[in-house]
Every structure is written in C-alpha cells, then in structure tokens.
Amino acid sequence: MSIAAAIDHTAWKTIELERKPHAAIVWLNRPTVRNAFNEVMIAEVTEVFRFLSVDTSLRVVVLASRGPVFCAGGDLSWMKSMATYTPEQNLADAHGLADMLRVIDRCPHAVVARVQGACYAGGLGLVTVADVAIASDDAEFCLSETRIGLIPATISPYVLRAMGEREARRWFLSAERFDAARAARMGVVHEVVPVDELDATVDRLLATLVRVSPNALRESKTLVRDVAGRTISDELIDDTASRIAAIRVSEEGQEGVKSFLEKRKPNWLPQELPTISVTAPSEQ
C-alpha cells in the first residue's frame, strides 16, 4: 500500500513527511517552540505512524526534528490549558500521548531516531520507542517532569526498558540533565557522533537496514518484544524453535539461504542502494 493517496500532507500543522526509496522521514516541525508536544502534534504523529505502519514498500522510518532541538517535551501552553480539564478530559489527553508512543513502538518497520540538541521529557520517550537512536554529541537529555510537579508516567515503560530500573531511580526523581555520552552508557541512545557527522551516520545505518530481509526485520522486532524479560522455559524454547522453523521455509528465508550458497545478491536487495540524506533543507 502506498501512503501517497492515503494522507493529506497539506493538512498537517506540526509535522512533515518526506519519502525516500524504502524509507520515510517524519519531521517534527515546531522549531519555534523547540518541537514541544501539544495535542495537535500528538494526533498528527500518531496518524502518520499508523499509515506508515501499513505501507509495505517501506523498510525504515526516521524520526527527526527541524531546527536545533529534537524535542523539549510538552508545550507549556498546552499543559497550562489542562488545568481547566475535567478528570475525564485529562485521562483522555494522557491516553493520546500513550497511544502515540505505542503506535511508534509497534511500527513493523525499523524506526531510527536522529537526535540533536535538547531532548527532554516526552522527547526522551520518542527516543526510547525507536529501534535505534543516534545522537549528536551536543544532545542533552532530561526527565524534567518533577521540576514542575509532574511524573514521566506515559513514557516510563519505554524509558525504563532502555535505561533500567536503577538508573531510572535517579533520573526520574532528580530531573537532572545528562549528556549524550551518559545517555549512551545507559542504553538510551546507541551511538554518539559529532554534530557534523550525524546525517552521514544515519545514512550509513539506513543503507545497512535496507540490505536485510524485510520479513526478517519485521519478525526480529516481534521476537525482541516477545522474548525480552521471559524466563527461559520449555515454553519459550518451543516458541523460539517454532519461529526459526517457520522462517526457514518462508519465501525470503529460502531466498536468503539460496542466494548465499549461490554467491549472489538476494532478490530483496535493491539493484542500486539508495543514498538517503536526512539533512533538513533549512540546515543545508
């Protein structure tokens, strides 16, 4: 399914969608407010990821931001308006953010976060729902919620999964800032590179991701989610054995083994690997 006919790109107010061969780039586009969330951005990001998730021509989705800041968390004007919400309205609003994070987390394609500058609160949630996060060395992270009397509730399942409980006990409570190097040590991001190498690093990763079997990529994402945290038991062993047995006889499994033995490229590999630049036009 192609997304071209399914989405009205001109209707979006807070994001942009850029299409590349086998890849899409979702740009957060509120640079004047440091790409902070409001209810419109949450709804639009949710919508675009739902459509991208059913686009079978895609293999990778990049989540990036216009301007010098990745995401400063919640828009203060939006949060101020919540003071007038009823409990039911507040709950519905919170579910909107939680649903957005889950839609990105469950996207069947590889999701890559390109992180620069400040990444606070909900922005950190976006980073931790991505499969791979690449940060520039000027990136700065903060779970800032407790400074304004809140808690990082909806993002907590994903942030905890990334950094672990022990680290979360400090950073959830203290609202301290930490740099990209510490974020990498904790598992929040996978790689830290100089600012001027960020796009080239993401490009190399994308070129690698489009080389792998699309079906194996999707099944590997599911495998990680289903196996993580489970006790090694007879049931788990049976489950994993069944998965490898099934993929061995799949079309791409057969093609992969056959092409390897015949020393040729598999049929899912593009004849010409795309060059995917994620540099924002305003930054060129």
Rank of each mutant, 00 (worst) to 15 (best):
residue 24 A to N: 13
residue 35 N to T: 04
residue 207 A to V: 08
residue 246 A to T: 12
residue 108 P to W: 00
residue 246 A to Q: 14
residue 52 L to K: 08
residue 278 V to T: 15
residue 159 V to F: 02
residue 270 P to V: 05
residue 101 L to P: 00
residue 261 L to M: 09
residue 25 I to C: 06
residue 284 Q to P: 04
residue 154 T to G: 02
residue 217 L to V: 13
residue 198 L to G: 02
residue 115 V to W: 00
residue 206 L to T: 06
residue 227 V to C: 02
residue 272 E to I: 11
residue 88 E to W: 01
residue 10 T to P: 01
residue 258 K to D: 12
residue 172 F to D: 05
residue 127 V to P: 01
residue 55 D to W: 10
residue 9 H to V: 07
residue 12 W to M: 09
residue 265 K to C: 09
residue 258 K to R: 15
residue 230 R to E: 07
residue 161 R to P: 03
residue 53 S to V: 09
residue 82 M to G: 10
residue 10 T to A: 15
residue 267 N to S: 15
residue 102 R to H: 09
residue 32 T to D: 14
residue 282 S to Y: 03
residue 160 L to F: 04
residue 112 V to F: 00
residue 209 L to Q: 09
residue 167 E to H: 13
residue 37 F to V: 08
residue 45 V to L: 15
residue 98 A to T: 12
residue 92 A to W: 07
residue 226 D to T: 02
residue 127 V to Q: 01
residue 270 P to W: 01
residue 216 A to Y: 13
residue 20 K to T: 00
residue 176 E to D: 15
residue 244 I to R: 09
residue 215 N to F: 09
residue 258 K to H: 11
residue 68 P to C: 07
residue 275 T to W: 13
residue 259 S to C: 09
residue 137 D to S: 15
residue 185 R to E: 15
residue 105 D to F: 14
residue 242 S to F: 02
residue 191 E to G: 03
residue 109 H to I: 00
residue 172 F to I: 08
residue 280 A to S: 13
residue 62 V to M: 06
residue 237 I to T: 07
residue 9 H to Y: 08
residue 18 E to C: 01
residue 1 M to Y: 05
residue 179 D to G: 12
residue 226 D to H: 02
residue 181 A to I: 14
residue 129 V to H: 04
residue 11 A to Y: 11
residue 250 S to V: 04
residue 83 A to P: 02
residue 27 W to M: 04
residue 191 E to S: 05
residue 208 T to L: 14
residue 120 Y to K: 13
residue 200 A to G: 13
residue 73 G to S: 06
residue 40 V to M: 07
residue 121 A to S: 15
residue 28 L to Y: 06
residue 224 V to Y: 08
residue 164 G to I: 11
residue 218 R to D: 00
residue 268 W to K: 00
residue 110 A to T: 12
residue 114 R to I: 03
residue 48 V to H: 01
residue 87 P to L: 07
residue 236 L to E: 05
residue 140 E to T: 13
residue 208 T to R: 15
residue 222 T to E: 14
residue 155 I to D: 04
residue 7 I to V: 15
